[in-house]
Write a protein that binds this DNA or RNA. Sequence first.
DNA 1: AACAAAAATTGTCAAGTGTCCTAAATTTGT
DNA 2: ACAAATTTAGGACACTTGACAATTTTTGTT
Lengths: 225, 225
Amino acid sequence: MTELLKKHNAISVADLAFPPREGGYAKGHETREQILHAALQLLVDHGYRAMSMRRVAAACGMKLGNLTYHFPTREDLVRALLDAVIASYEVEFSAISQNPDQTPEHHLELYCELVLEDIRTKKTTRVFPELWSLTNHDPFVLDRVHELYARARAPLEAIIAKMRPDLDQSQCAALALFISASMEGMTIFAGYEKPFEPRMPALEAIATRAFIDIIRSIAAEDIPD
Amino acid sequence: MTELLKKHNAISVADLAFPPREGGYAKGHETREQILHAALQLLVDHGYRAMSMRRVAAACGMKLGNLTYHFPTREDLVRALLDAVIASYEVEFSAISQNPDQTPEHHLELYCELVLEDIRTKKTTRVFPELWSLTNHDPFVLDRVHELYARARAPLEAIIAKMRPDLDQSQCAALALFISASMEGMTIFAGYEKPFEPRMPALEAIATRAFIDIIRSIAAEDIPD
DNA sequence: AACAAAAATTGTCAAGTGTCCTAAATTTGT
DNA sequence: ACAAATTTAGGACACTTGACAATTTTTGTT
């Protein structure tokens, strides 16, 4: 966790973690959350294929039947997992607009830090590459992934609107889409461990500066409505 | 196919296609290529899970035994498929440096066109999202995906080196990595069909212009070696 | 203590998977 | 004509998967 983030209490997906119970049955939604945590762990560490109902149940130390009691189908589990991840992203990125320093440049810096921190910790960044395969064939997953990226992009649109009052809303959206695509592309590198790690410092150094340049220099007439 | 690409005879993965034979046994590597085409089709259309040995064989109209005769294991098939896709990329991107117009700005335009065309046709862009789940756990696939992106990035490094003679090789590489990450991020949107399509024109319009700005404006001291 | 609901266990089902195998038939190259 | 390569026709193995049903244990409430 970088200095920049420490003071904002950003919540990562890791905070979905719930310690395993020692004895007795679960009350409330404890078991559900334990299952979601175990499923997420499996997904990130060993991939979507490893996130089978049996393995999730085993990781929770419970029987398969009990897992299907809480999540009747694997699809239900995936959907609940997506909801949980999106909720944690929401908290994470809402920290940007609540930052006391109101200059858009500083907010942009915060945005880049948040995404890059995600890449470094490799927690949330590994979730969606694992699910992209589903994305192409399950409209629900597609919508949720779309929703997640839209939420991560929202603060960016606000930043751009402040820096470029000459642009209308749809132009700001297009510009935000372009810049967030850069960050999302970088998350791809999170899957490449050895070869790209020495270059991360370069990316970290360039990102904010390059985005400021883009936002300032792109002419309004270059962005179609 | 856009005007810009027509005159360069860019070869896409679709050109791996081989029509099914009407009679007689295959000679040379015909069957191998037919299998690879069918496997790619299945991968792109219905996902990696659907690319099972049995389905590939069925798609080829041949018996399972014959498929395993040519590709003993599924891993062999996946690896051959990766090789084929990478080879087609190689041809595609080599068209940039062979272009008669030698200005780096025009080469950059060509590079952007190539990637965006890939997004539009949604052919190659769907291959790797399907395989990213493998990428995280199979070093061979990881290396190949790394190789593919490196090949797509190579012409970019050459372009940047021309535009920025003040940068050394590793700085050009870092800058190329940053810019190609943008394009790779955009390929993510290829998975989103409806919601993002109206914004593609904006991305197409901004991309080249924004990259030129970045390449020109990033200070050398901002890029660590 | 009693009793219904919730939670968890145990066992099983049909389907599909990759891999391997043998025997025979067909086509190819020489 | 003949050996090699290719394809068909089956089958079998061990294994995994998602889903489900019947049963038992725990919990909360009365």
